[in-house]
Design a protein around this nucleic acid. Structure first.
Length: 256
DNA sequence: ATGGCTACGATCCGTAGA
């Protein structure tokens, strides 16, 4: 099974690139973030024509997530149960024998801001929810835009970013608390090239300078981590005209 | 130089992203 995640920064703008990428990469499951459209505007028919079913949790203008799958999905769940939130950031579904949770974690704006406090509250709620998913599903994958660079090697310029949002100690602690529910960062199961990132600022020629962060992740329960044969970031879509500022992360699992 | 793009929905600027 090939699992992927991609923050597309508007599914309407990126639909042609998305359809091309699906045809070329042929993931079995793709988690999408920042759809920026309500479910009524979601291009379900176009993606069905491309061979993919969709579980969608949409919202006008902001946020919005979906799980695309070649096989049909079941037991779809929108949002974090019991966490009052008007931002559509989570959708979960079961595909074949794998429970998939797609997340668009809050940005946090700046350390100490109201949005930062929201980010930390949100991560605490996500952790409680994932602990339950993990207890119910030994084969669990959690994929998305986490808006956290877990370690300094996930940051192009750790000195410049020190203490900033995406790398601050409380955010990294919240990240480790997610892993402590029984999940592994698939990317770090393998030797990786240095300075591999998943997001680059649109400004200041961020991509050309490889001034990026690794903030898009695929977490796997132990059972799936044991089946994982590769974990990569596909930079090709970031090179296109009018790209998303994020690149897809991909993890491959061998059959059980 | 604390800006610089990009998307959106409101209008020709403000909000948000990271």
């Amino acid at each position: 099974m090939k699992l992927a995640t991609w923050n597309v920064n508007s599914i309407k703008v990126r639909l042609p690139q998305l359809v091309d990428w699906l045809a070329q990469a042929r993931p079995d499951v793709l988690c999408l973030q920042e759809l920026k459209t309500p479910v009524e505007g979601y291009p379900r028919a176009e993606l069905e024509a491309a061979g993919y079913a969709s579980a969608v949790n949409g919202q006008k203008t902001y946020n919005g997530v979906a799980i695309l799958s070649r096989a049909s999905s079941s037991d779809t769940l929108a949002d974090i149960p019991g966490f009052a939130d008007d931002q559509r950031r989570v959708v979960a579904a079961t595909v074949a024998d794998v429970r998939v949770v797609c997340v668009y974690c809050p940005n946090g704006q700046s350390v100490g801001s109201e949005k930062y406090e929201y980010k930390l509250r949100w991560f605490a709620a996500l952790r409680e929810y994932l602990a339950k998913e993990r207890a119910a599903h030994p084969r669990l994958a959690v994929a998305g835009d986490f808006n956290v660079a877990p370690e300094d090697r996930d940051v192009h310029d750790p000195k410049a970013w020190e203490g900033q949002v995406h790398v601050s100690a409380p955010e990294r602690e919240a990240w480790r608390a997610l892993l402590a529910t029984g999940l592994k960062d698939s990317f770090r199961l393998f030797e990786q090239p240095e300075k591999t990132f998943s997001w680059w600022d649109y400004r200041m020629m961020g991509f050309r300078r490889n001034a990026g962060l690794r903030i898009d992740h695929i977490l796997l329960s132990d059972e799936l981590a044991n089946r994982c044969t590769s974990a990569t970031i596909d930079k090709a879509p970031r090179r296109l005209e009018r790209p998303s500022d994020h690149a897809p992360a991909v993890a491959e699992l061998r059959a059980a």
